[in-house]
């Protein structure tokens, strides 16, 4: 028997594939990035709304937390399967579950971020005659930002991994390469799809990390004092 990973036609990675199928790889990468950004953007908008409700009406924290935790436990394959009859094999069917999975971590961190703002700071802002909107946007949001960014990093990295599953409903992305490889026991697209997915996650993580530092330069000063 020929060892599975050493067949001539089927090495772990066949380098010509990069050149021959570059169009396919590039398109998969762009689709993957798009799906990730749409899902996280939608997740962020919904999380902002849910967090606002949770912070305004404290009693809603437990139910909101329970609901987002429940969404998180539904297996992605099943959630895609449930949505296909309603939205077809569309981008929406892929983005909705992916966005739903980001809610747990994003809401938790947004709420924790705003909770970390000390009452004294709030009082000081009120004392300076700031309107509530101005106080939230100019004082509380910047102070909560490190928490939000920490949540965003986890959300983005996990979403990049999950987007690979969206290939089963025909939304492309790097999962398309992985699935193609699985269907043909062809290692090259699997290796490339999985590696690029991991690489993309690391790059996006770094982008948010440094973007966050640029947004909140004062947070660094605090950290270096430790």
């Amino acid at each position: 028997m020929i060892p599975l990973l050493a067949q001539a036609a089927n090495p772990i990675i066949r380098w010509e594939y990069f050149i021959d199928e570059w169009d396919q790889i590039r398109r998969a990468l762009v689709e993957h990035l798009e799906l990730t950004l749409y899902a996280v953007a939608l997740g962020l908008i919904v999380s902002a709304g849910l967090s606002a409700i949770a912070l305004r009406y404290r009693w809603t924290i437990a139910p909101i937390n329970g609901f987002t935790a429940f969404l998180y436990t539904i297996p992605s394959v099943a959630l895609f399967g449930i949505l296909v009859p309603y939205f077809g094999l569309s981008r929406l069917t892929a983005v909705l579950p992916l966005a739903a999975y980001t809610l747990l971590i994003l809401v938790t961190n947004i709420v924790a971020g705003f909770n970390s703002v000390s009452p004294e700071v709030r009082e000081a802002a009120n004392g300076m005659g700031m309107s509530p909107t101005r106080r939230v946007l100019h004082v509380e949001l910047p102070l909560a930002m490190p928490y939000i960014i920490a949540g965003l990093r986890i959300a983005v990295v996990s979403t990049v991994g999950l987007v690979t599953v969206a290939a089963i409903i025909g939304q492309g992305g790097l999962g398309r390469l992985i699935l193609d490889g699985l269907r043909r026991t062809f290692w090259t697209p699997m290796t490339i799809g999985a590696s690029l997915s991991i690489l993309l996650a690391l790059v996006l993580d770094a982008v948010i990390l440094f973007g966050g530092r640029w947004l909140t330069p004062w947070a660094q000063r605090g950290r270096s004092a430790l």
Partner: peptide, 18 residues
């Protein structure tokens, strides 16, 4: 971060034939 980014399905799918 790296391990969080690993696509579980791909790993499992790769391991089955092996």
């Amino acid at each position: 971060t790296l391990s969080r980014a690993i696509p579980t399905f791909a790993v499992a799918g790769l391991l089955v034939p092996i």
